[in-house]
């Protein structure tokens, strides 16, 4: 199965009247791993949230296409049905809903009515994925993200990614707040998905994650735009030299968009 294509064209996004993204262009195809890097406040997470349809973000200009279909016309659940998945930086806590019930509802949402996943098959798949991510099985019966540590929340996001097998996965700072062991486990989960059918957009503030998940393409965001793109060698240069050389090269003084984005 060949993968899907996510195209972002001249994307402009506002939050509460303030423009954060100022013309982002990016294409992610099945089989490709893209990393988006950049200092804090340059619009990386805004891009992820806008693609998925977060209620606070308003797209004012540009296009997002999934295999040619207009994503911006879709409701959030339709975007997921179309093959998009966002591992969130701050997943919501939902009291009273067990992680297991949520996962089963999510899987069934991608299946036809009357073709729901059999309970035993679901438990088997969930258990296998939890083992792979070295997760405590009790987590399945705990309420969704409630009282989870930062690391548990991130693993839970990757667990969902593994079970839902989307065409395009977007990982929004999946590495923040993880210790090195957790980072390795999460990376293992991401790498397991690598195939022609899976494209991935990895948003990160640190180079560390990219030591474990090697990107094919690397993009740097500043001032709400992609200002530099390259291959994996770009990660190494950023690691040793930081971002200042890019700012100098492009004549940028303040790389941020003015607010925490």
């Amino acid at each position: 199965m060949s993968g899907s294509t996510l195209e972002i064209k001249d994307l402009h996004v506002e939050i509460e009247g303030k423009e954060i993204l100022k013309g982002v262009n990016l294409t992610v195809k099945g089989g490709e791993f893209h990393a988006i890097m950049g200092p804090n406040g340059t619009g990386k997470s805004t891009l992820a949230s806008a693609i998925m349809g977060h209620p606070k973000y308003e797209v004012t200009k540009g296009q997002i296409l999934m295999d040619g279909e207009d994503v911006l016309e879709m409701e959030v659940d339709e975007r997921a049905q179309a093959g998009l998945f966002l591992a969130m930086q701050y997943p919501s806590e939902i009291s009273g809903v067990t992680t297991s019930d949520f996962l089963r509802s999510s899987i069934n949402a991608h299946r036809e009515e009357g073709d729901e996943i059999p309970l035993m098959k679901f438990i088997k798949e969930m258990d296998a994925a939890m083992d792979y991510l070295e997760m405590d099985k009790n987590m399945a019966q705990r309420y969704l993200n409630e009282g989870f540590s930062g690391g548990e929340k991130k693993r839970n996001e990757i667990l969902q990614l593994m079970l839902l097998k989307p065409a395009i996965g977007i990982l929004d700072e999946i590495d923040s707040g993880l210790d090195i062991d957790a980072l390795k486990v999460v990376s293992k989960g991401i790498n397991k998905l690598r195939s022609e059918a899976f494209g991935c957009l990895i948003i990160t503030h640190y180079q560390r994650l990219l030591n474990y998940v090697t990107p094919d393409y690397v993009h740097v965001m500043m001032q709400g735009r992609v200002v530099k793109s390259g291959g994996p060698e770009l990660v190494e240069r950023l690691e040793s030299e930081g971002y200042d050389w890019i700012k100098q090269e492009l004549g940028i003084e303040d790389e941020t968009v003015g607010i925490d984005a």
């Binding site: 349809g53 977060h54 409701e75 959030v76 659940d77 999510s106």
Partner: peptide
Amino acid sequence: YYLMSRGIS
């Protein structure tokens, strides 16, 4: 938004 982002209506 979180629940719907997993495809749930």
